[in-house]
Amino acid sequence: MSWLWPVDASAYADHVDLLLGGFTVLIVALSAPVFILMAVFAVKYRRGRVADRRHPVDNSVGLETSWALIPFILLLGFYVWATWLFVDLHRTPADALEIDVVAKQWMWKFQHPGGQREINTLHVPVGTPVTLRMASQDVIHSLFIPALRIKQDVVPGRYTTLSFTADRPGTWHLACAEFCGVDHSVMGGSFVTMTPDDYAAWLRTADTDATLAEAGAALFRSHGCSGCHGPSATVHAPPLEGLYGRPVPLEGGEVVTADAQYIRDSILLPRSQIAAGYPPIMPTFANQLGEEDVLRLVAYIQSLADARPEDRP
């Protein structure tokens, strides 16, 4: 491994390198006149040395304007490029493989859709868009994959996402970039990119008894969620079939989308957003469910996105 330039594992990483390379050329061009002229003047106009020092006394507004505006306009070109790339990074591909990430002091936990779990190592297939849905169990962490030139803070209380498509198989670093306490510097591990076949083989060997959604369904029953939201419920609670991704009218007249964040908040902070027409009787599960369990429940409710209440088993 080179000790001067980072390895890269995606076309996006190449693009960031190209952007940085181009930008470096620009900033060298903007600063070179300063460095060269300062050195030349220091020699040429050294005190005591004979030189032609005649010059007009008036300062030039034209000169001031041009050295304020020309660099700025050149920078704007790169601003557009960098912002476009950044917006692109934040576009979540529709067909992405979703992997859940839970950060806690001081480890990374990953849950694949099939229920496979791993700690401090993340396996992904190359050539497939991947979206990480990330939650923190305690403080702010930041998932940093240098080979992809990406990172995203993992913030307690909200889901953040990170999307990428790796295109080179290999084993790379994965690190925590946001200072998170005592063992921050050892909160890292490996990011393994594999061919789709190898990834499928790895999924089969990884130990699992249930998919993420199935594990969520089990939690749904064991924590009594089905008592109110299930088919035989006696209380008036919103059905969860066909909910995910749909608009939800709230008590106050606002309409929100039932995304993962909404599901999470409804489980942990049920009083924060009350669905219109339902009494605010849902208790919080903040003291019973960790972020990993909540993500399983989210996966379960997400799996019901295309179901209808009458399809209930």
């Binding site: 960031v16 601003y79 912002t83 790339l85």
Partner: peptide
């Protein structure tokens, strides 16, 4: 360099 969004994502922190 750090104000360039896509570069900052990599070199931030």
């Amino acid at each position: 360099v750090l104000t360039m969004l896509a570069v900052d994502v990599h070199v931030h922190d």
